[in-house]
Design a protein around this nucleic acid. Structure first.
Length: 585
RNA sequence: GCCCCUGUAGCUCAGUAGGAUAGAGCAGCCGCCUCCUAAGCGGCAGGUCGUGCGUUCGAAUCGCGCCAGGGGCACCA
C-alpha cells in the first residue's frame, strides 16, 4: 500500500517536471504512515523537500502536486495540512482486501523477495569452546539468529555460521586443565593452576578421559611439575606457570595422546554448545573450524597475499601487518617471534576466505568489547584487495541480569547461574529469546529475570502470546456454541467491519510487511517486538470493546476473518523472533 | 590519553537518512467481568529530550565543545 502511494507521488512529481514547474526532483520524498489518524493514513513531505528548488512556498507546491496526482481507487481523500504535508486517506475497501491476502498467504505473509536471492553470511556467537555458553553469549545468539531469519524472510539467501576457535592457547589451557583434573581423579595430588579452567564441566570431561583410558595418561605429579615455575599465589607468574604446564603436557603425553585429551575437551564442549543453541532455536548451516585454516594453508596464503601487496614487515623477529596504512591505530603482529601465527592471522585468512566463497555480504555479530578489532580486520581485507565494504560488523552491547531489582551476580563463585542453559531453564526459551532482542543492539540491555518469568500483562512475551491464544480460544468457543468456524471466501461480508477498533486493527496488519522489511534492512529485531506488542494491544482492545461471536451471521463471519488474520500475523512475527505461538495459556 | 556505545516521564525504553501537539510499558491514582480466558481493557497524572553554542523556514534527530555512565585499547583468543 505504501508502494502505491509512493508511486502516485512519483508520478505527480514527474508530471510537474514535465510541465516545467520543477526543473528536476530535488529530493526524494518520504512516504510515511501518519501517527495521528486525523492526518489520514499516509503522509508525504514531497512538497516540503522540493519547495526550495521550485522557488515557491511548500503549500503552494503542495497544491500543484495534488492537482497532478493520478486518481486511484484505493485513495478516498487527499488533503494538504500543516506546513505543506500531503495526507492520503485510504478507501475502506482497500484495507479490507488485505484480509483474504493474509489468510491466503498464511505463513508467507510478510515475506518478500527484496533480497533477490543475494547471498548473505551471518556469523554469530562463535564463542571459544572452552566452556558452556555464558548468559552473555545469549544475546549475540538471539540477535544473530533473528537478523539472519529476518534477512531470509525478505528474500536473501542466508548462510548462518559459527567460527570455532579450535586452535590456540586458550584451547591448550583447556586441554591441560582436563589432563590435570584427570591426574587428580587418578589419585595424584597437585595444586590446580590459578589460570586453569576450574568449572565442574572440566571434572566431567576428565572423568570421561579416565573411564576410557584408565591410568594410561597418568604421570606422578612431581614429574609433571618438574621445572615448572611457580604459580601466582606462590609468588610467580600465572601465565608462565600455565604455559610451562602446557609444555609439560605436550612433552609427557606426546603428540598423539595430547591430541586425544585436547579433542575430548573440544568435542565434549562443542557438542554441549551445539545442543544448547539448538534448544534455544538457533541452528547453523556451518561450524567453521579455525584449525582447518592452518591445515588448508589458508593462513599462509593470506600472509603471502599481504606480503605480495607490500604491507608486511619484520621487526624484532616477528612479522607485522602494517594496518596503520588503512587507518588502524597501530600495526599488528601476524607471526610471533617464536614462529607461531597469531589469532589475528587466522582471522585475516577466515575473512579472506569468506569473501572468496562469494558472499555478496558478510555480517559478523560481535560483542561490543571487540569493537577495537574492527579496523584491523577491515584493513586486512583492504590490503588484500578485497571489497571491505561487503563486511558489516554488528556490535552487541552487554546484557545485565536483574533479579529482585538487584544486579544478578554472574560469576561462578557466587553460585548464581552463569550459563545460557540455566537461563533457559529459569525463564524459558520464549522469554529469553524475546527479551534478548527487545532492545536495539547498541543499547545496554537490562534483563529483568522476575519480569521474564511473570505471567502477567507486564510481561511483553505473555502479552503477545496471550493475544494469539485468545483468538484460538474464541474459535474453540465458537465451536462449543454451535457456530460454524468455516469462514467465507474473499472479501465477502468485510464491509461490516466499520468500527474504529476494526480499522485500527486493519491498519496495524497492513504495517506488518513494512515492519519486517525495515527490521531486516536495518538489522533491528526490536522493531518487530515493539510492533507485536502494539498489534497485541489492538487485538485485546478490540476484544474488550466488541463481541465476536454475535448472532448475525455476516457480522460474525467478518469479525472472525479479521481476528484469524490477526492471529496469522502474530504467529508469523513470533516465529521470526523464535518465540512459540501457543493455542492456549 | 585515544576509540566505540549510551544519556528522552519516578523506572525500563521507542522515536534520531530534520518535519505537524515528543510516544509506549511498568510504578501511582480512578474506573470496567450475570457477557468469547480480568494472563484483559479504558481514563487521569507525569517531560527545560544530559548541557552550552551553532546550522535551518523547522532540531530529541545534524555539527562542535563540555558533563555523566558503560566498554575497549596484547607477539591472549
Amino acid at each position: 500500500m505504501k508502494a502505491l502511494i509512493q508511486d502516485l507521488v512519483s508520478q505527480a512529481l514527474a508530471q510537474l517536471v514535465a510541465d516545467g514547474v520543477l526543473d528536476a526532483v530535488a529530493a526524494e520524498p518520504v512516504i510515511e504512515r501518519t501517527r495521528d489518524p486525523d492526518h489520514g493514513d499516509f503522509a508525504t513531505n514531497a512538497a516540503l523537500v522540493n519547495s526550495k528548488a521550485a522557488g515557491m512556498k511548500p503549500r503552494e507546491l503542495a497544491d500543484k502536486l495534488v492537482l497532478a496526482l493520478p486518481t486511484s481507487e484505493a485513495v478516498a481523500g487527499v488533503e494538504i495540512a500543516g506546513p505543506g504535508f500531503i495526507n492520503f486517506r485510504l478507501a475502506a475497501g482497500a484495507s479490507h482486501a488485505l484480509i483474504p491476502r493474509i489468510l491466503a498467504a498464511g505463513e508467507g505473509f510478510g515475506r518478500s523477495d527484496l533480497g533477490a536471492g543475494k547471498r548473505v553470511q551471518v556469523e554469530f556467537v562463535s564463542a571459544n569452546p572452552t566452556g558452556p555458553l555464558h548468559v552473555g553469549h545469549g544475546r549475540g545468539a538471539a540477535y544473530g539468529a533473528v537478523v539472519a531469519d529476518l534477512l531470509a524472510a525478505v528474500g536473501f539467501d542466508v548462510h548462518r555460521e559459527y567460527y570455532v576457535n579450535d586452535a590456540g592457547r586458550q584451547m591448550d589451557i583447556l586441554g591441560t586443565s582436563v589432563w590435570l583434573r584427570y591426574l587428580e581423579l587418578a589419585g595424584e595430588e597437585l595444586v590446580f593452576p590459578s589460570n586453569g579452567y576450574k568449572g565442574d564441566y572440566v571434572w566431567d570431561i576428565a572423568a570421561t578421559l579416565h573411564r576410557h583410558n584408565g591410568d594410561a595418561f597418568r604421570y606422578p605429579a612431581a614429574e609433571v611439575y618438574a621445572g615448572v615455575p611457580a604459580d601466582a599465589p606462590a609468588g610467580g607468574d600465572k601465565e608462565e606457570h600455565i604455559d610451562a604446564l602446557i609444555e609439560r603436557a605436550k612433552q609427557l603425553l606426546g603428540a598423539e595422546r595430547y591430541r586425544t585429551v585436547f579433542d575430548l575437551g573440544l568435542d565434549t564442549i562443542l557438542d554441549d554448545i551445539r545442543d544448547d543453541l539448538s534448544l534455544f532455536g538457533v541452528d547453523y548451516q556451518e561450524w567453521y573450524s579455525e584449525r582447518s585454516l592452518t591445515e588448508s594453508g589458508a593462513v599462509q596464503r593470506a600472509i603471502d597475499k599481504l606480503k605480495a601487496s607490500g604491507h608486511i614487515y619484520e621487526k624484532q623477529g616477528a612479522l607485522w601487518f602494517k594496518s596503520t596504512d588503512f587507518g588502524d591505530e597501530k600495526d599488528r603482529v601476524v607471526v610471533r617471534d617464536n614462529g607461531q601465527t597469531t589469532y589475528f592471522a587466522s582471522d585475516i585468512a577466515y575473512h579472506m576466505e569468506k569473501l572468496e566463497r562469494g558472499f555478496d555480504r558478510v555480517i559478523d555479530v560481535w560483542g561490543a568489547d571487540h569493537h577495537g578489532y574492527v579496523p584491523r580486520v577491515k584493513a586486512a581485507l583492504q590490503a588484500m584487495g578485497g571489497d571491505h565494504a561487503k563486511l558489516d560488523v554488528l556490535l552487541v552491547q552487554f546484557a545485565i541480569l536483574y533479579r529482585g531489582g538487584e544486579k544478578a551476580q554472574m560469576s561462578t563463585r557466587s553460585g548464581e547461574f552463569v550459563t545460557l542453559r540455566e537461563l533457559r531453564k529459569e525463564v524459558g526459551k520464549d522469554a529469553a529469546r524475546f527479551f534478548y532482542v527487545m532492545r536495539k543492539c547498541e543499547q545496554h540491555l537490562d534483563f529483568d529475570l522476575d519480569l521474564a518469568k511473570s505471567q502477567s500483562s507486564d510481561n511483553p512475551v505473555y502479552y503477545v502470546q496471550y493475544a494469539h491464544a485468545r483468538v484460538c480460544s474464541v474459535l474453540r468457543q465458537a465451536q462449543e456454541k454451535g457456530f460454524s468456524t468455516e469462514i467465507s471466501d474473499g472479501t465477502t461480508n468485510l464491509e461490516h467491519l466499520a468500527e474504529d477498533h476494526e480499522k485500527a486493527l486493519l491498519t496495524a496488519l497492513a504495517k506488518y510487511p513494512e515492519v519486517v522489511q525495515s527490521a531486516a534492512l536495518n538489522e533491528e529485531p526490536h522493531q518487530l517486538t515493539h510492533y507485536l506488542r502494539e498489534l497485541a494491544n489492538d487485538l485485546h482492545t478490540y476484544y474488550n470493546a466488541h463481541q465476536f461471536l454475535v448472532a448475525d451471521d455476516a457480522l460474525r463471519d467478518a469479525r472472525l476473518k479479521l481476528i484469524l488474520a490477526t492471529r496469522q500475523v502474530l504467529a508469523n512475527g513470533l516465529a521470526l523472533i523464535g518465540v512459540s505461538a501457543p493455542e492456549a495459556m
